[in-house]
Design a binder for these strands. Structure first.
Lengths: 207, 207
DNA sequence: CCGCGCATCGGTCCTGAGACCGATACGCGC
DNA sequence: GCGCGTATCGGTCTCAGGACCGATGCGCGG
């Protein structure tokens, strides 16, 4: 029997979730909480297998509560269910350890499937959350650096940790040439040292 | 009317998808393809709004076809539907520009909802794909660097581009101390210069 | 108590990095 | 033809970075 903790500051919502969860075979609501702090406390007393967590709650928000519960109970899976489809909520919740992020307007049938999936160890996000996650992490808008092709090559090698002499040998040019390119890069990217170039390269997803 | 291209090397699968799609109001199958190359060609002749794409296909796989179609038709949304739930497929497909990744055992009702979501500009992944995406991009297993707390502080500042003297001022210690820590870091992390430290810090997700 | 790891600090020495100066050659557009 | 940007190359000079030497104090466990 999978024990579920329901955390939401609205009693009506908790009641709905309780009915929904209890209607699913193998699942049982083992506790309720009206604030993030309460959720953490209840989870400490009765370790849940699954947590349905709201984000906006008094005392402590659901993100922070998620972080603490995940830290204290690694086996617990947290499914965020919120009204507000905000970027920071999504990223924050997932970084805090949440395994899912759904909106409250999700149809009950899908919610149940999601609960099952999360309880089984998988993860699940609402469509808009998924889109933004992909945009942010998988296909981030590669910042355009206004540099020439040759300079880009040099930048990549710098970011790999090669010394100027090594870059020269790699590109079959002289040390002077490499230094010229590096100087141009420093100027164009507003960097003081090659360390800043490495940082710029990483931030621009060149590596 | 949303035009859908169905690409799969099995005629039976195509037929199933065609019936499913045509049964949804506002959607219409505008073309079929049995290989990745065919999919690209058909898409070029009759630009689709949505593509249902298999991965394993002769001539060209669905990932590469996705890449080309997304490059040529930015408005086209690609939904990968495959039998094989492999990591490389998921990461590859999303990097290629796919907006969704589902398994063929997805129930028809959910598939239809997914098609609608993807056509509306959102994204959707199956539960296991979502989990692995999160594990890989949002909460990557931070490599443990065997360094002291103080060294970690110095490393972070180095990775931010601070010079030794600036680090010294920031931490209220002498330049000598910073140099000592940096030397220890170079030794422990097997780095030759501070550039390697920056790289190590980025790879270890310290920044 | 004594050893060990950690953090702190100072000095010397050498080298790569980067600024700044110069130059040539090539392609491209006006 | 001439200017402009890019890529190439050389020299000089300064300085931060890093190696290597030394040292002290502190906490912690055998």
């Amino acid at each position: 029997m999978i024990k579920v903790l329901v955390a939401d500051d609205q009693p009506l919502i908790r009641e709905s979730f309780r009915r929904l969860i209890d209607s699913v075979p193998g699942f049982q609501v083992s506790g309720e909480a009206a604030t993030g702090a309460q959720a953490v406390a209840v989870a400490a007393g009765e370790p849940p297998d699954l947590v349905l967590m709201d984000v906006r709650m008094p005392e402590m928000d659901g993100i922070e509560a998620t972080r603490r519960i995940c830290a204290g109970h690694p086996q617990a899976r947290v499914l965020i269910v919120t009204t507000f489809d905000l970027d920071e909520y999504v990223y924050g919740a997932l970084q805090a350890g949440a395994a899912g992020f759904l909106l409250k307007d999700t149809p009950p049938a899908e919610l149940i499937r999601s609960v099952r999936a999360v309880a089984a160890g998988d993860s699940l996000l609402g469509p808009s959350a998924t889109r933004r996650l992909i945009e942010r992490y998988v296909n981030p808008p590669a910042r355009r650096l206004d540099i020439t092709e040759r300079e880009r090559e040099v930048l990549v090698l710098v970011a790999r940790g090669l010394a100027n002499a090594e870059i020269a040998r790699t590109l079959y040019v002289s040390l002077s040439t490499v230094k010229t390119h590096v100087s141009s890069l420093l100027l164009k990217l507003g960097a003081r040292t090659r360390v800043h170039l490495v940082i710029a390269a990483y931030e621009a997803n060149l590596v």
